[in-house]
């Protein structure tokens, strides 16, 4: 099986036109993206945006209505078992057997993976300061989360999938999770996480995909997002004047009809900005780099989708056989 796991040039995850409905509720609506090897990829969105569903489809735990998904070159629809044995997965609400001890659940899970699992699990639990003899039912929420993380990463997976890994955890455990995520990534492996913790994503992610109500609003590197988007605070000379038109794409405009207006723009050029600044009705324009949160809020409020930049949406390469 290991020879099927593709080399570094192929995407680790590739999703094409994925759609999924539950009854009359749309969970995923025609979503496509690819994840290159060695990055931290964050799926950002509010609860119920379709993040968990896409992760479950990738792991073969749910079936998509249409579209396709491959993980490490394996078709999620048919090779779920192989995918799950290669990938590490930290589910949203890790359900662990409360009656087992930390050591027992490691031993139990080791039965499903390769030979190095047990040793690595024990190394990780020592690092996370989890006593092997402790009953899982007696651990704190953070302790259980750490066990779940250790179980997911003890076979050193080339891809670590984490569904809302840090939500509901206290600061120290969150920090530990972020550190491990970074460490996994620094060792050349790929991390796919879903989250609604924007500041955390901003710290650790290479690529961010924002989903809302099953739709992919944007998928781009964090650097690109911040470079292509600007926040302009425009002050007009008086309240009655209209905001002059600009060639830049306005993603969101707030304070419409008042003197001070806030714009989130993308694909802007310095000329556009100067044109606006030179306009007689404009008193001043302040420009800042938006934080990820400002970008997120802007996209959410406007509901607009941005075209993916070329760097990320490399045409999905042929699925390795």
């Amino acid at each position: 099986m290991s020879q099927e796991i593709n080399n570094n040039t192929d995407p680790v995850v590739s999703i094409t036109n994925l759609s999924k409905r539950y009854g009359n509720q749309t969970a995923l609506d025609d979503i496509s993206f690819t994840i290159p090897a060695g990055v931290v990829f964050a799926l950002l969105g509010e609860n119920g945006a379709g993040k968990s569903t896409s992760l479950k489809i990738l792991l073969g735990l749910e079936k998509a209505d249409s579209g396709s998904a491959t993980v490490l070159g394996l078709d999620s629809k048919k090779r779920g078992i192989d995918i799950r044995s290669a990938v590490g997965y930290v589910p949203e609400a890790p359900a662990l057997y409360g009656w087992m001890t930390v050591g027992e659940i490691g031993w139990f899970t080791a039965g499903f993976y390769g030979d190095g699992f047990q040793n690595e699990f024990e190394r990780l639990t020592a690092e996370y300061e989890l006593p092997l003899g402790q009953k899982i039912g007696k651990l704190s929420k953070g302790g259980r989360a750490k066990v779940s993380l250790a179980l997911a990463s003890a076979h050193k997976p080339p891809l670590l999938v984490m569904d809302e890994p840090t939500s509901g955890l206290d600061t120290l455990v969150r920090r530990k999770f972020l550190e491990s995520m970074v460490d996994v990534s620094a060792s050349g492996r790929t991390v796919l996480l879903s989250s609604h913790q924007i500041p955390e994503v901003e710290r650790v992610a290479d690529i961010v995909a924002i989903v809302n109500q099953g739709k992919l609003l944007v998928c781009d590197t964090l650097d690109n997002l911040k470079q292509t988007m600007e926040q302009w605070v425009v002050t007009l000379k008086d309240e009655s004047s209209e905001l002059p038109s600009t060639k830049s794409t306005i993603v969101l405009r707030e304070g419409r009809g008042s003197r001070r207006q806030r714009l989130l723009v993308s694909d802007t050029t310095p000329e556009c900005l100067w044109q606006l600044r030179d306009d007689p009705v404009v008193e001043e324009v302040l420009v800042h780099t938006p934080s990820l949160e400002e970008i997120f809020v802007g996209l959410m409020k406007s509901g607009k989708t941005l075209p993916a930049s070329k760097r990320v949406s490399v045409d999905s390469p042929e699925v390795s056989s």
């Binding site: 972020l178 970074v182 460490d183 990534s185 992610a205």
Partner: peptide
Amino acid sequence: RETAKELAINPN
């Protein structure tokens, strides 16, 4: 790797 882990920021 050490710096990234210590600061909990992206290694790249």
